[in-house]
């Protein structure tokens, strides 16, 4: 590939500080005992060694667990609305995994459909995504079964590949090309480097052992939608908590609440999950009270409704819902055991 570059792992610190002048840089960082993409502190590049994938996906940087929509005050003339200060700044996420980048593309579809969400899209607009391919995928990852791979660079601006001591850099989008052109300290990649990179890509592709067959999965799910026994069996051990939906990079459901203190208040938007029974609590009825309906909704939304409405399966195989679930509920087992269409 033309214009691909090489940078030594030791110079990553210099590269990031170079970019730091223009962008706010987010890197995988430890926060308490959990990991998420957070502001770079300016020197630590230790994440290159321990980083496999963050617990909270990059969705959190665009669609946080809680955000203030606006504040309001009541006085004689009526209500005054104060919009939350939207911190307008150019942002760069370094070392985002391909599954999280693909997930952002799916979230874009959801947040643009019918109503353009200002909060999410304003952050998403001025952000550069620097991808880092996985050389050590988890045993719960299954991105290869969803048309992606540990090195899929479709939704990133620049793609880094770890070839031992150095990183093999490929530009993907225009913005990526511009940025690489502006950065110093990169040397041209030689044929040997390219060979090394493709070998690494090949190796990590095969490291992803978990597979699911998503061929017309939406038809199979549609056919077994009324199959209560199947869904009861699949949902038996689920404890209806919010881990899999909150940490899933393609889940975008939210709840809106007002906090009122005397004459003023704030409207918050926070994550909500279809796994909770009160998610569909309505006057007189709750259409999805039973657990099997809620688990069915979670699976069918991603593998049936989304493909039928938008043509793409709303799952990128990051495996978080499998490895972080308290009772090890496994979506791949659920998908594999969907009965064939009779």
């Amino acid at each position: 590939m033309s214009g691909s570059k090489i940078i030594n792992k030791k110079d990553i610190g210099k590269l990031l500080s170079q970019w730091n002048e223009e962008f706010v840089i987010l890197v995988p960082s430890k926060e308490g005992d959990t990991t998420k993409m957070a502001k770079w502190d300016g020197k630590d590049t230790g994440f290159i060694d321990w980083y496999r994938n963050t617990v909270q996906a990059s969705k959190t940087n665009f669609f946080p667990p809680m955000e203030e929509m606006f504040s309001f005050q009541k006085d004689k003339e009526g209500y005054h609305i104060g919009l939350a200060s939207s911190d307008k700044h150019k942002q760069l996420i370094f070392a985002i995994r391909p599954c999280d980048a693909n997930a952002l593309a799916i979230l874009d579809v959801a947040f643009k459909d019918g109503y353009e969400d200002p909060y999410y899209l304003s952050r998403r607009k001025d952000t550069l995504l620097i991808g880092l391919g996985c050389i050590n995928p988890y045993d719960s990852c299954f991105c290869t079964s969803l048309g992606s791979s540990p090195f899929d660079s479709t939704n990133v601006d620049i793609m880094f590949t770890d070839i031992g001591e150095e990183f093999f850099i490929e530009e993907v989008t225009e913005a990526g090309k511009e940025l690489v052109a502006k950065t110093e300290g990169l040397r041209e990649a030689s044929k040997v480097d390219e060979a090394k990179a493709s070998k690494v890509k090949e190796a990590s592709y095969n490291k992803v052992t978990r597979k699911i067959d998503t061929r017309d999965i939406d038809k199979k799910l549609l056919a077994c939608f009324e199959n209560k026994d199947y869904w009861e069996k699949v949902s038996a051990k689920c404890i209806s908590c919010g881990i899999c939906t909150f940490l899933c990079p393609t889940c975008y459901c939210f709840d809106i609440n007002d906090e009122l203190v005397r004459k003023q208040g704030t409207r918050f938007r926070s994550w909500d999950s279809c796994a909770f029974p009160i998610y569909t609590e309505m006057p007189v009825e709750n259409p999805r009270l039973e657990k099997w309906r809620r688990v069915r909704q979670k699976v069918c939304h991603k593998f049936e409704f989304f493909p039928m409405n938008f043509g793409v399966v709303a799952c990128t195989g990051c495996g978080r819902c499998i490895r972080l679930c308290g009772v090890n509920w496994d979506i791949t087992q659920a998908i594999e055991s969907v009965p064939a269409i009779i």
Binding site: E31, I239, S240
Partner: peptide, 14 residues
């Protein structure tokens, strides 16, 4: 510690 909590209620449901 609790500014990190995302209220997934796993602690309550388990």
């Amino acid at each position: 510690e609790f500014s990190r909590c995302i209220r997934c209620y796993a602690c309550r449901n388990v």
